[in-house]
Computed example of a mutant assay.
Amino acid sequence: MKRQKRDRLGRAHNNGYQAGLSGKNKENCPYQNVDAKSEWLGGWREAMTDRNTGFFK
């Protein structure tokens, strides 16, 4: 059970990261669950930092 939960949250983080790289707004977060939303936003912020530092173009 713990592995499934971890995988789900990891997927939320990855989805947020991809959304951030593509320039989507953080208001477009598709998750309602607090944990998943937090992971998605964390990925989104990480991607925005990478974009702003020129890591991805």
Rank of each mutant, 00 (worst) to 15 (best):
residue 17 Y to E: 06
residue 24 K to I: 01
residue 16 G to C: 11
residue 36 A to Q: 05
residue 12 A to L: 13
residue 46 E to C: 11
residue 53 T to W: 05
residue 29 C to Y: 03
residue 7 D to T: 08
residue 42 G to E: 08
residue 9 L to R: 05
residue 46 E to R: 04
residue 6 R to P: 00
residue 44 W to F: 15
residue 40 W to A: 02
residue 1 M to C: 12
residue 22 S to N: 08
residue 56 F to A: 06
residue 4 Q to F: 12
residue 42 G to Y: 03
residue 27 E to R: 12
residue 50 D to S: 04
residue 50 D to F: 00
residue 44 W to D: 06
residue 18 Q to F: 14
residue 15 N to D: 15
residue 45 R to L: 15
residue 19 A to Q: 03
residue 24 K to H: 06
residue 40 W to T: 02
residue 36 A to S: 13
residue 28 N to R: 01
residue 48 M to Q: 10
residue 32 Q to S: 12
residue 37 K to H: 04
residue 11 R to D: 14
residue 33 N to I: 05
residue 56 F to M: 04
residue 47 A to D: 01
residue 54 G to Y: 00
residue 45 R to A: 15
residue 29 C to H: 02
residue 27 E to Q: 15
residue 15 N to I: 13
residue 19 A to H: 05
residue 1 M to T: 09
residue 9 L to N: 08
residue 9 L to F: 11
residue 34 V to I: 08
residue 34 V to A: 15
residue 2 K to E: 09
residue 45 R to M: 15
residue 6 R to H: 07
residue 23 G to Q: 02
residue 9 L to W: 08
residue 26 K to Y: 11
residue 15 N to K: 08
residue 32 Q to N: 06
residue 39 E to I: 03
residue 3 R to V: 10
residue 6 R to Q: 11
residue 5 K to T: 13
residue 38 S to A: 15
residue 33 N to T: 01
residue 20 G to F: 08
residue 43 G to R: 00
residue 52 N to W: 10
residue 29 C to Q: 01
residue 29 C to P: 00
residue 49 T to G: 10
residue 1 M to N: 06
residue 15 N to Q: 14
residue 38 S to P: 00
residue 1 M to F: 14
residue 18 Q to N: 14
residue 18 Q to P: 02
residue 44 W to R: 05
residue 50 D to W: 00
residue 15 N to V: 12
residue 10 G to K: 07
residue 12 A to V: 07
residue 38 S to W: 00
residue 9 L to Y: 09
residue 42 G to Q: 07
residue 19 A to R: 01
